[in-house]
Write a protein that binds this DNA or RNA. Structure first.
Lengths: 116, 116
DNA sequence: ACAACACATTCCCATATAGGTATATAATCG
DNA sequence: CGATTATATACCTATATGGGAATGTGTTGT
C-alpha cells in the first residue's frame, strides 16, 4: 500500500488551508458556493470539491435554496481535533513537569510578551 | 501546480494518524526511536521519517544519547491548531446563537452527560 | 579494528490529491 | 422552450507522500 485516504477524517479535512478558509468564512453564517468562490479567489469547481470533503467529514451541511446551495458550518465535527490537541495545551501554558521548559517560560516572561 | 507541500505545517503533520500516535507516545516523556517503533508496530525507517516531519514543524525535539536519539514532545508547535479550533468550540458547547443547537444542548443535559 | 546496534537517508512505487478545464444537472427567467 | 445562472462531477496532470527495502552513518563493545 502507499498512502492512506486522507479526506476521510476531520484532521485531514482541516489540514488543507483552503478548507480552513472555507470554514472560517462560514463562521459568519451560511453562504452560497458562489460567495465562497469570491472569498477564496479560487475556481468554482475547486470550491465545490473542498466543500464535498468538508461535507463528507460532517464539517458543513447544505441547504437548498432555489438554484443555490447554502452551506452552513457544523463545528461539532471539529470536536475530535479539539479534544486531541487539548491534551497538549498544558505543554505551552502550564508546563509543570519539565524544568527546561519552565526556564523558557520565565525567560519569555521577562523578555517580550509575544506568544508566537 | 498540483498539490501543496503538506508536511510544512503543524496541521498536516498531525493529520497523519501515525504521527499523532507518536506524539501521544511522547506525551509520557522522551523516548528513543526504537521504542517508538515498538509502540507503533511500524518499521524503523518509517518511524524515522515521521519523526523528521514532526521535527520540521517543531513538534518534537531530539537529544543525543550515545547511539540513541531521544525524542521529546514539544507541544507548543500544536498551539496554532488549538487556537484555530478553539474558535469553533462554541459550536458544540455553548452554541448561543442557534435555537436548534440550544435545544440539542438541553436534551443532552437531561439525558446523559457524555459529549460524544 | 571489527562486529553489532541505533538511527537516518535514499530509492522505488502505488496512490491520493489539488488545481485546471470541460461538461452534466438543475433551477430561474424571458 | 431556450438562455442564463448556480453548482456538482468527470477527466487530466503534476506532485506529494507513505510504506517497503537497501544502504549510509555514527556509536558502543570486545
Amino acid at each position: 500500500m502507499a498512502r492512506a485516504a486522507t479526506t476521510a477524517d476531520a484532521f485531514n479535512a482541516v489540514a488543507e488551508p483552503r478548507r480552513r478558509q472555507i470554514l472560517d468564512a462560514l463562521a459568519g453564517g451560511e453562504r452560497p458556493v458562489n460567495e465562497l468562490v469570491g472569498v477564496l479567489g479560487l475556481a468554482q469547481p475547486q470550491v465545490s470539491k473542498h466543500l464535498r470533503v468538508l461535507r463528507e467529514v460532517g464539517a458543513v451541511a447544505v441547504r437548498e435554496d432555489g438554484r443555490r446551495r447554502l452551506y452552513r458550518l457544523n463545528g461539532r465535527a471539529l470536536k475530535p481535533i479539539h479534544d486531541w490537541v487539548k491534551a497538549y495545551e498544558q505543554s505551552w501554558s502550564e508546563r509543570f513537569d519539565r524544568l527546561d521548559v519552565v526556564l523558557e517560560e520565565l525567560k519569555k516572561e521577562e523578555g517580550d510578551g509575544s506568544d508566537e
